[in-house]
Write a protein that binds this DNA or RNA. Structure first.
Lengths: 343, 343
DNA sequence: GTGAAAGCGCTAACAA
DNA sequence: TTGTTAGCGCTTTCAC
């Protein structure tokens, strides 16, 4: 690697010298502030364009005391349909406020803290966080400094702040009731890390729905399936039990896809019912089409961003928790009747 | 909205006063620079933690002349499997360099310029861009200022810079040859905006493969299908032609899914062959499983980031173009033989 | 309508 | 090992 010799970027001083005026007038022109003649302003803009001037927002934000017109979004994966929809909702609201939305993916839970602090050090005006590590109490300092925080999809741990979540328990309850209504009594569950809030909630909805019935045998609940392959394996094990479930409830997209693979592997797609939590693009194209509990992730993003901007504007009421409804989309896989009605 | 009264954040001066030393010693301790006693350093770190001090990187980067240890990624959608994989690759390399990766989604092509300039004004150290607008010549100023730019997935227009793309034409050629080998002569094409580089390239690969054969009737090529619904409609129209195609080649994920819906609508899934460009998660779960031209998007991200960091480190050779191979994944839909062998 | 001076919080360069 | 001075590029304040 060669020694770095980056050409310096033109500054307001360069523009000012070129036009023959003071730096302050350049600032006024470029920021469209009043108190400058149309003539001078035009000249400044022309020269700025010629020089390829780009205002240094590091300096600007520093002087303006940390107002960066930027909000940060911190998630585990940049993507998956879920995050794309979430960020789309956030973007919409941020655009109305003229703020730039910058997203960072943490990939690993142990990089969450450093990523959040990096955003804080760069002085974003606020943060939307989908927490994935075990504890966010290190954010007390940001909160004390008045940095607005909004948690989405999952509540924070170790700190209290605005939160927007889906009605996970309600969705789990509805899915399970739906399967019960179709005659199922042995309903298997395939889900991801049991430590995650959404997983716990969805399972608790499942259990609540089964509370009136005879049983929810623990061997039918397979959590901690990380990735589609693990989910496929877990579903396969359930299907090979001496008394296998007649229906599967999968706690997220990835698990649903894994379970669908297992069902196909055993040619049980049209005999064992399947309901997945969270919709996905090709759910209608599988055989049979997959019934899901859908969440309105767009709205989740919009709510989170609206809360955040209200806080940025100065709203300092107590933390609010917003719970968004979920709804069941019947596509076929969830409407398969139980083969052997319960005794 | 109340008047905003954000508590001031502690600065190095606050820490220095509290410890009773100079601000420079605080700086040294916090940045783990040499020239400070272990004792003082420890004391500084303790007080900094107590106060919830977060170094103001706006000021730091300003003083250090725009080195922000941040790279920007600008894409149209934050997500879809494609972008997630791309960003994953970038993240991996950036982590090795200790840089933060911040992603901005432009959503609309007409916001690309303002988003890129916003990143430039915030003085990122470099940019990875998946261009979606018609022209990027406004980036000449950034290039002149020595801001490294790497374009991914599509080359820039109006400016010359490092570029990492897939072998789109090769993939289109391979897909078409594959279908020809299975006896297909009338091969329909469903694709997105014809103005997009990747679409043009994939079509040109298709045409090249057909050059030796009798024809590639223009009525079989349906471009500008934006969204799955439009693709489904276009595919449906192709299938209702007096002389319908016996195979479909879809130029991206979304089109493939739309075409799959059309095939199911007409119950032709097992009679008309289907090959899609770019793999997707449930391709193996459709009926029949979907044959695709896969691109290694992870590698695309890594290559782009490696190029970018080489530039950031000072490499100033001429712009390089990297073309990554694609490969066909046979899953079934692409191996359906033509119903009516060509005359 | 315009400009000079001060300073945002930090680090580079140098002095002690 | 520690501190002092200057200044990064901009906006705020105030004077003209």
């Amino acid at each position: 690697m060669v020694g770095e010799r980056r050409p310096a970027r033109p500054t307001m001083k360069d523009v000012a010298d070129r036009v023959g005026i003071s730096i302050k007038s350049v600032s006024r022109a470029l920021n469209r502030e009043p108190g400058i003649s149309a003539d001078t302003a035009e000249q400044v803009l022309r020269v700025a364009r010629q020089l390829g001037f780009r205002r240094n927002d590091l300096a600007r934000s520093l002087r303006r005391r940390d107002r960066t017109e930027t909000i940060g979004v911190v998630v585990r994966h940049a993507s998956t349909r879920f995050f794309d929809n979430l960020i789309r909702g956030i973007d919409e609201v941020a655009a109305e406020h003229g703020a730039l939305v910058l997203t960072a993916a943490t990939r690993m839970a142990d990089r969450e803290e450093s990523t959040l602090l990096a955003m804080s050090s760069r002085r974003v005006d606020g943060l939307v966080i989908v927490p994935s590590s075990a504890d966010q109490s290190f954010l007390h300092a940001e909160q004390a400094a008045g940095l607005p925080l909004v948690f989405a999809d999952r509540p924070p741990t170790g700190i209290s702040a605005d939160t927007v979540i889906a009605d996970n328990a309600g969705g789990g309850y509805a899915a399970t009731r739906h399967l019960l209504a179709h005659g199922h009594r042995r309903i298997g569950v395939v889900g991801a890390q049991s430590s995650v809030f959404t997983v716990k909630e969805r399972v608790s909805g499942y259990r609540a729905a089964l509370a009136g019935t005879r049983d929810a045998p623990p061997e039918l609940v397979r959590l901690d399936c990380v990735g589609a392959t693990a989910a496929q394996r877990a579903a396969g094990e359930l299907l090979r039990l001496p008394e296998p479930p007649t229906a599967l409830f999968c706690l997220n997209n990835v698990c649903t896809i894994g379970a669908a693979r297992a069902l196909r592997e055993f040619s049980l797609g049209n005999q064992v019912a399947l309901v997945g939590f969270d919709d996905f693009d090709t759910a209608d194209l599988l055989d049979p089409p997959v019934t899901v509990v859908a969440q309105d992730v767009d709205t989740m993003g919009r709510c989170a961003a609206q809360l955040l901007f209200a806080r940025i504007k100065g709203d300092d009421g107590p933390p609010r928790v917003t719970v968004l409804p979920t709804h069941l989309i019947h596509r076929g896989s969830g409407e398969i009747a139980a083969r052997l009605p319960a005794t």
